[in-house]
Design a binder for these strands. Structure first.
Length: 448
RNA sequence: GGCCCUAUCGUCUAACGGUUAGGACAUCGCCUUCUCAAGGCGGUAAUCAGAGUUCGAUUCUCUGUAGGGUCACCA
């Protein structure tokens, strides 16, 4: 029989803000480690400070974790466990490990309060961190710190220690901003007679200037990345490689593969700058793994309201493909649409003669003839099979003999009204025969 | 300021005493090409500094420097 304790990890977010990208990564590592060892991953909402807690944040955190695919096995709220803390607090006071101290309220020196302070043994304390090895603190500097606002109102450190112990948390995996909190928690833990968990302090995720990530320096909430159109699998993959590596050059991981390969051995010691560009790359890579139909459906949903584009996409699988490979996120796509980059799908472009001419054209005087010929060739393509391949087939041979630039450039500009756009065959397929002819005619009349 | 942690290309990282210091993102160039994007190929680019230990240090030790964290009746 296996006598080893089942691995149990936990994430302990405070519902005082939206799911933070750093919390998401800590959750991911807790999840991966637990699942790797067939253990359990627990979410514990740390809401002991009622004044800073909001339900909408709790909802966002839980939603976010689910969206990312980090399924928890148990969920707790500290606000629902007060009796547990009160009892433990009482025991501590009764055994004189802690004491009630009458003093002036911190924010009001008239009001008297009765806080609970821990009797600090004032010793040197050493604990082992998975990543950094032994870390020693002199606990004297901590003094008899407060562990509860009152006999019935526990503070963070106390609640954490009691919960971790009672919930059988075997591995405390958290951000390294908690390193200095650890001795304090161990003191409480020893006063309670609990066993120490294994501590693993993950390096922080940093803003580009290497300081703590904050709203001022870019998006910190998972919801924001979600809104921008990042795939959960891409975020997971990126976050996993921020501070961890599989020891190989493999970079694209699915959640299953991460669970398979994860270990606490390849963790980084120093903080990692969050690089949105690399996240975008991961997003592109993960998008390639998603079934085409599903992506197409999402694309169309994103473009809701842009009827011209939607009709074009309905007609042209090539245009769908083109849009899909051009942008790494939906936010970028919508931005491009909003700034009019694709307005040729919505309305007739305004043509200018000098834009119609290819800059490197050796025979610009042949424009009129060419447009006439293009019109003729395209006119021969059947309306019902007006596809990328067929349009290309009709024009290609002529373009090669006449000079591709001299033919394809004006054709493309006539259809798009832009110097930069998808290629002319995609445009033709997307616009349909009637519209294609109309636009080419429009260009032709400029030369009459 | 005290205490604690950290230090390889711009960024994420590999190298667990011996490598032309490897890969990825970004960047630059070339190819492809009607434009843009994509794609293919290639280039630039790093061991914080100074002492030790060693035949040999990115790797071990010490000091300095820099950055970060933490010092609540927040979590």
């Amino acid at each position: 029989m296996n006598t080893e304790k089942k691995v149990r990890t936990r994430i302990a977010p405070s519902p005082s803000g939206y799911l933070h990208i750093g919390t998401a990564r800590t959750s991911l590592f807790c999840y991966l480690y637990a699942k790797k060892l067939k253990g359990e991953f627990i979410v514990r909402i740390e809401d002991t400070d009622k004044s800073r807690t909001e339900k909408k944040y709790e909802d966002d955190i839980l939603d976010g974790l689910e969206w990312l695919g980090l399924k928890y096995d148990e969920l707790y709220r500290q606000s629902e466990r007060t009796d547990v803390y009160v009892k433990k607090l009482q025991e501590l006071v009764e055994s004189d490990k802690a004491y009630i101290s009458k003093e002036k309220a911190k924010d009001d020196d008239v009001r008297e309060v009765e806080v609970v302070r821990l009797r600090n043994p004032n010793t040197m304390l050493t604990f082992t961190d998975t990543i950094r090895g032994e870390i020693t603190f002199d606990t004297t500097e901590l003094g008899d710190f407060v562990i509860a606002r009152s006999k019935t109102d526990p503070l963070y450190h106390f609640a954490v220690v009691v919960d971790d112990a009672l919930m059988d948390i075997t591995h405390v995996i958290r951000g390294d901003d908690h390193i200095s909190n650890t001795p304090r928690q161990i003191l409480i833990l020893e006063a309670c007679g609990f066993e120490r968990p294994q501590y693993t302090h993950l390096p922080m995720i940093l803003a580009p200037d290497r300081s703590k990530m904050s709203k001022r320096k870019g998006a910190v909430a998972v919801t924001e990345y979600r809104a921008q159109g990042f795939l959960p699998s891409a975020i997971i993959n990126y976050l996993a490689l921020l501070g961890w590596n599989g020891g190989t050059e493999k970079e694209i991981y699915s959640m299953e593969e991460l669970v398979q390969d994860f270990s606490l051995d390849h963790l980084q010691k120093s903080g990692a700058v969050f690089d949105i560009e690399k996240l975008k790359w991961f997003n592109k890579e993960h998008r390639k793994l998603i079934p085409k139909e599903s992506l197409t459906r999402d694309l169309k949903a994103q473009l809701e309201g842009n009827t011209g584009i939607l009709e074009a996409l309905e007609r042209s699988p090539k245009a769908v493909e083109d849009l899909l490979e051009r942008f790494s996120t939906w936010a970028e796509l919508k931005e491009a649409v909003a700034t009019g980059e694709y307005d040729f799908y919505e309305k007739l472009p305004v043509l200018e003669k000098d834009m119609l001419a290819w800059k490197k054209d050796p025979n610009p005087e042949r424009m009129k003839d060419r447009l006439h010929k293009i019109l003729e060739l395209i006119g021969s393509v059947d309306t019902t099979t007006f596809t990328y391949e067929n349009v290309k087939g009709a024009v290609w041979a002529y373009a090669e003999t006449e000079g591709k630039g001299g033919v394809l450039w004006p054709m493309r500009v006539a259809l798009s009204g832009k110097e930069r756009s998808p290629d002319p065959f995609i445009l033709a397929e997307a616009l349909g025969k009637e519209e294609t002819i109309t636009r080419l005619n429009e260009a032709y009349t400029l030369y009459l």
